[in-house]
Design a protein around this nucleic acid. Structure first.
Length: 813
RNA sequence: GCGAGAGUGGUGGAAUGGUAGACACGCUAGAUUUAGGAUCUAGUGCCCUAACCGGGCGUGCGGGUUCAAAUCCCGCCUCUCGCACCA
């Protein structure tokens, strides 16, 4: 068979779609439920149906698929589902722009992407597909909301919230990104508003969320979540303000209490107005107003000089009875602790800076080790010995923290306290395309949850959804006006919809029984598959989706729905594939790479393998399509192994073929286990090159055996090619139902090795030697080398190091 | 400022104490071809040498440990990401 006809033989357009059809017809990827096999739930993050699958989807999904296929061949029953995160803003924005309904836009995208997902050649179980904008799905969002409400985990409160002026909705704290505080979706800087909103009490689970002992997740994600939760331990201390009453502060350093020489309140603190003396009223008022006008970005700019205003009032330090001045300053934030602090300039950098500026006493109360007395040039924040602290003088500061707290507690002036940076999860959104919050407001009965049997509260199809800043559902009288389920009187519905992160917090459970209508999922089936064994997705969701879904699972456990604590046992973060210009791919930058043209030209297998080959999966990087030719060549050459000339002789060493095959099986197995797809492909290439080199010089039996193993280990990477080759070898359908080949460690070992000879650590020669050569023999061999001799002649050999099977290093002088 | 990750040929990358640059891209030469493409063969870190034989240098920079360092330790530089007045 000539090379030309071989080339025509593998036409990806024909061959790939033919196998895809056959796979679908034969139900090859229907989930294997065989209870005798160990289970493996592999999950890739729920994609948003944005229109077309872009190369980023391929990058995220196909290596996951490769690993799922591998697990299946290794004897696991594998559940590998897919679905669509179908609610959310882009649908609405597109709908507004094009004048079509968000549902229509979303479904046509889903339709489109379903076809493209099949083109990828994945083993997704499409029967388990979940579409989150379906009433049969969001009904259970509402059900969860009701359960949360019953448990006191869902509540409504007027809170300062982040508002995106572009998307015209509130955002959760996690969805405000970076120092510039921009919207996670659109990049617009957010503004502050006070609104009555629904929140989930994720803070109740803060401590448990800090415990990662039951999961194998990347350190990076665990650190991000830990920092996000921001637990700090300390004390709440009451400072009395004569004529007003006690005001509480939170501090992590109660041991420095005696050094508090002033007191600061956040401009938003509700007591500010009440404690301010008449003479200071005007100045304080103008400062507070200025702070309110200032943007969040300016307000939190750390390089800015500290500013503040004296209120005229004084607070009493409960430790020593001293009166200290109360300031209003914007470096104290209302959103953390109690919104008021005791300022200890000697031992806090910010307080130090402020005290210098306003000429306030800086009194050391913790003596640094080796301190000789004298003024502080900067705040000392480390540990030391307590001084100027009355009865506590001489106490080490770390001990002092507990002792001072206990002392305050005895006198009813303070207590041990823990503070978190984590805020409750704000779930209200003032947009149309989301899950209606199942709450009814009745004048007589107040806030009434929609009874479970009335779910789902359907999202009206014909609402006017152009954003106005108000919830669109408010403008739909048929939706808005209702009757109270309790008293039957006139009532109105909650018109906000839920954050779409609600949908993705529990979708992995719904996949198990997407049409189940007696609960969010069939718990019996859950017992057979849960929890997720291997999750893969981008790190950008570390403190959003990945925190929310852990929270959800813990609540679900407390509701008795699951009997474990963590949703996903293992997590792997793949990197992000960037545009050719090194920037994130986006339509506006015009740097989006469309996978379709590569699929058309080379086929899905080539694109899959190329994406796995370009580098370590966790690193991502800019797209550079040039190297794809190399992968195309590799698969073409691999294919010619079965179509090209067969065995015609037996000159090649059969042991060598066996050894190489075993070694490659071992390498590929270990690489897939460790997500090192790039080196796996490299060794497949190497093995292909070797097999091509010995083709025609191999006995029939060895050749077939070598090819069989090769096709099996190729199968997870290039499923179409492998299937085609398998069929061409006359083997029975399907390669994907075969068992993963075993390697034999004894057959991997080399009989002969390249012995490296160094003199004083410098490479001088390489000598072929038996693998089990003894030290003396190796040294003798080395000394006999004509390349080595000039470097050792006339010199004393002081030492020789022998690394068995690798090298000899002669140390001479 | 704090925390994490990274820095290796023209390019993507491999090697986690023992042959630096596997595997590819690209490039050069040759074969095949009317030509181009495709394919095949050989070469390809840099420098000295006409070439060979040799040799030297080389993993961001500087030092150290070791028979031996891209890899371990100390100090610095650069880039990327995250957090950032959190009391």
């Amino acid at each position: 068979m000539s090379e030309v006809s071989v080339k025509r033989d593998y036409d990806p357009g024909i061959i790939e779609s033919r196998w895809q059809r056959r796979w679908a017809e034969s139900g090859l990827y229907k989930t294997d439920e065989d209870p005798a096999k160990p289970k493996h739930y592999a999950l890739t993050m729920l994609p948003y149906p944005s229109g077309d699958l872009h190369v980023g989807h391929w990058y995220a999904m196909t290596p996951s698929d490769t690993r799922a296929r591998f697990m299946r061949m290794r004897g696991y029953r594998v559940f590998f589902p897919i679905g669509f995160d179908a609610f959310g803003l882009p649908a609405e924005n597109a709908a507004i722009k094009r004048g079509i309904h968000p549902r229509k836009w979303t479904y046509s995208n889903i339709e489109n992407m379903r076809g493209q997902l099949r083109q990828m050649g994945t083993m997704f179980d499409f029967d388990s597909e979940v579409v989150t904008c379906e009433p049969e799905y969001y009904r259970w969002n509402q059900w969860f909301f009701l359960k949360f409400f019953e448990k006191g985990l869902a509540y409504r409160a007027e809170v300062p919230v982040d508002w995106c002026p572009n998307d015209q909705t509130t955002l959760a704290r996690e969805q405000v990104i970076g120092p510039n505080r921009v919207c996670e979706r659109c990049g617009t800087p957010v503004i502050r508003k006070n609104l009555r909103q629904w929140l989930f009490k994720i803070t109740d689970y803060a401590d448990e969320l800090l415990d990662f002992s039951k999961i194998e997740w990347p350190e990076r994600v665990k650190t991000l979540q830990t920092n996000w939760i921001g637990r700090s331990e300390g004390a709440e201390i009451e400072f009395d303000v004569p004529g007003y009453g006690p005001i509480e502060v939170f501090t992590t350093r109660p041991d420095t209490l005696f050094g508090a020489t002033f007191f600061v309140m956040a401009p938003e603190h509700p007591a500010v107005e009440k404690i301010t003396t008449p003479e200071q009223q005007a100045e304080v008022k103008s400062y507070v107003e200025k702070a309110a006008r200032m943007s969040e970005i300016d307000r939190t700019d750390v390089t800015r000089e500290k500013t503040g205003v004296f209120t005229g009032a004084y607070a009493t330090n409960p430790a020593n009875g001293e009166s200290i001045p109360i300031y209003v300053a914007d470096y104290v934030l209302m959103g953390y602790g109690t919104g008021a602090i005791m300022a200890v300039p000697a031992h806090d950098e910010r307080d130090f800076e402020f005290a210098r500026q306003y000429g306030i006493e800086i009194r050391p109360v913790i003596a640094p080790p080796d301190w000789k007395g004298g003024e502080f040039e900067e705040a000392y924040t480390g540990e030391g010995t307590m001084i100027n602290s009355g009865r506590f003088d001489g106490t080490p500061s770390d001990e002092g923290r507990e002792k001072v707290t206990a002392w305050l507690e005895e006198r009813g002036k303070g207590r041990h306290a823990v503070s978190y940076r984590l805020r409750d999860w704000l779930i209200s959104r003032q947009r149309y395309w989301g899950t209606p919050i199942p709450i009814i407001y009745c004048e007589k009965c107040g806030t009434v949850p929609v009874p479970e049997e009335d779910l789902p509260v359907l999202l009206p199809e014909d609402a006017e959804f152009t954003p106005t800043g108000e919830s669109p559902l408010k403008l739909d009288p048929d939706f808005y006006n209702t009757t109270c389920p309790r008293c039957g009187g006139p009532a109105t519905r909650e018109t906000d919809t839920m954050d779409t992160f609600m949908d993705s917090s529990w979708y992995q459970y719904r996949y198990l029984s997407p049409h189940y209508d007696e609960g969010p999922f069939d718990t019996e089936r859950g017992g057979k598959w849960l929890p997720v064994d291997q999750y893969t997705g981008g790190v950008e969701h570390a403190v959003m989706h990945l925190l929310y879904t852990r929270f959800f699972t813990k609540v679900m456990r407390d509701l008795g729905l699951v009997d474990f604590d963590e949703p996903m046992r293992r997590l792997f973060n793949q990197g992000e594939i960037l545009g050719p210009d090194g920037n994130r791919m986006s339509k506006s930058k015009g740097n989006v790479v469309n996978p379709q043209e590569f699929v058309d030209r080379y086929g899905a297998d080539v694109l899959r393998c190329f994406l796995m080959f370009i580098g370590p999966w966790n690193e991502g990087g800019p797209w550079d399509g040039k190297g794809i030719e190399g992968v195309a060549r590799f698969l073409r050459r691999a294919h010619t192994l079965v179509t090209g000339g067969g065995p015609s002789g037996a000159e090649a060493d059969p042991a060598e073929i066996e050894r190489r095959t075993n070694r490659t099986i071992r390498k590929i197995t270990q690489d897939i286990e460790n997500f090192r797809f790039n080196t796996a492909i490299a060794s497949l290439m190497e093995h292909t090159n070797y097999l091509l080199a010995v083709r025609g010089r191999v006995g029939e039996g060895e050749w077939r055996e070598a090819l069989r193993s090769f096709v099996l280990i190729l199968a997870p990477f290039a499923p179409h090619h492998a299937e085609e080759m398998w069929a061409e070898m006359g083997l029975s359908y399907s390669v994907h139902l075969q068992e993963w080949p075993q390697w034999n460690e004894d057959l991997v070992a080399e009989e002969e090795i390249t012995l490296v000879v160094q003199v004083n650590g410098r490479l001088r020669d390489r000598i072929q030697a038996p693998a089990d050569i003894a030290e003396e023999d190796a040294r003798e061999l080395a000394l006999a080398s004509p390349k080595v001799r000039p470097h050792v002649e006339g010199k004393e050999i002081r030492k020789s190091i022998y690394v068995p099977g690798r090298l000899v290093n002669l140390v001479v002088k």
